[in-house]
Computed example of a mutant assay.
Amino acid sequence: MAAALDAFAADDNQWVAIVTGDGDKAFCAGQDLKSELPTSAASLPPSGCGGMTSRFDLDKPVIAAVNGIALGGGFELALACDLIVASSQASFALPEPRVGLAALAGGIQRLCQEIGMKRAMSILLTGRRLSAHQAAELGLVAEVVEANVLDCAKRWAAEIISCAPLSVRATKRVARDAAARPLSETVATIWDRPEIAGLLASADAAEGRSAFAQKRPPRWQAR
């Protein structure tokens, strides 16, 4: 997973990635509790569980297409993605406290950040499982489908790809940083960020305006 995501990050022709499970039973069932457990961050790959949970420099969007259970590290992997779509049969949980452990791959922090402390604690302290529709109601899942969830993810990817790639990447980086900093600071400094300056000076910025004026689809160059 880490190698695949490294290759995705390095390839200018790849603009969106989709992570999903094989079959319809599980997206990722998490740690095998019968195997030896990691005892420190050094026990994990540098990019974390699934090559994603400790990856903070990836500006391209990653979509989680959750096709079944996403438990423990599997839920943490989905939370580390930028957007989650789910099968109606999917479910989510961080059940580590039920077996004397804790969600140590960013799940605690991301869940609190994304849905608020009180709602997050109702999940974290109980290890209870959420259905796909419950996760959507909490704002964790963008869309729940009865049909093939991978097709749903591809539809979202196509919509993202229709936008300028530099705009998408700059927006992701600013949004990610803004989540951890005061609004007064991020609004005041956004124009000074190098990715924003590069975006505004890019060929795609000129192309977007030309395409709008000429009433035609834009031809993005990602540079």
Rank of each mutant, 00 (worst) to 15 (best):
Thr126Asp: 06
Ala135Asn: 07
Phe92Tyr: 12
Asp151Leu: 13
Leu83Trp: 04
Ile190Trp: 08
Thr189Val: 10
Leu166Ala: 05
Gly139Arg: 09
Ala205Glu: 07
Arg128Leu: 07
Leu138Thr: 01
Val174Phe: 12
Ile84Tyr: 01
Gln214Tyr: 00
Ala120Val: 02
Pro95Trp: 02
Ser91Asp: 08
Thr186Tyr: 06
Ala153Val: 11
Val85Cys: 09
Ile196Asp: 00
Leu138Ile: 06
Cys163Gln: 14
Trp191Asp: 11
Arg129Asn: 04
Ala142Pro: 00
Val145Gln: 03
Arg169Trp: 00
Gly107Gln: 10
Ile123Phe: 02
Asp192Gln: 14
Ser167Gln: 11
Pro165Gly: 05
Arg98Phe: 00
Glu96Cys: 07
Phe212Leu: 15
Arg216Pro: 05
Ala180Thr: 13
Glu143Gln: 15
Lys118Asp: 15
Ile84Trp: 05
Ala135Asp: 05
Arg193Met: 14
Gly139Glu: 06
Ala211Asp: 07
Ser122Thr: 12
Asp177Val: 03
Ser167Ala: 15
Ala205Asp: 00
Gln221Thr: 15
Ile84Met: 15
Arg223Cys: 12
Ala211Lys: 04
Ser210Asn: 06
Gln214Arg: 12
Leu130Asp: 04
Asp204Gly: 02
Ala103Thr: 04
Glu159Lys: 11
Leu111Gly: 08
Ser184Phe: 09
Leu140Cys: 06
Ala153Asp: 10
Arg176Thr: 13
Pro97Phe: 05
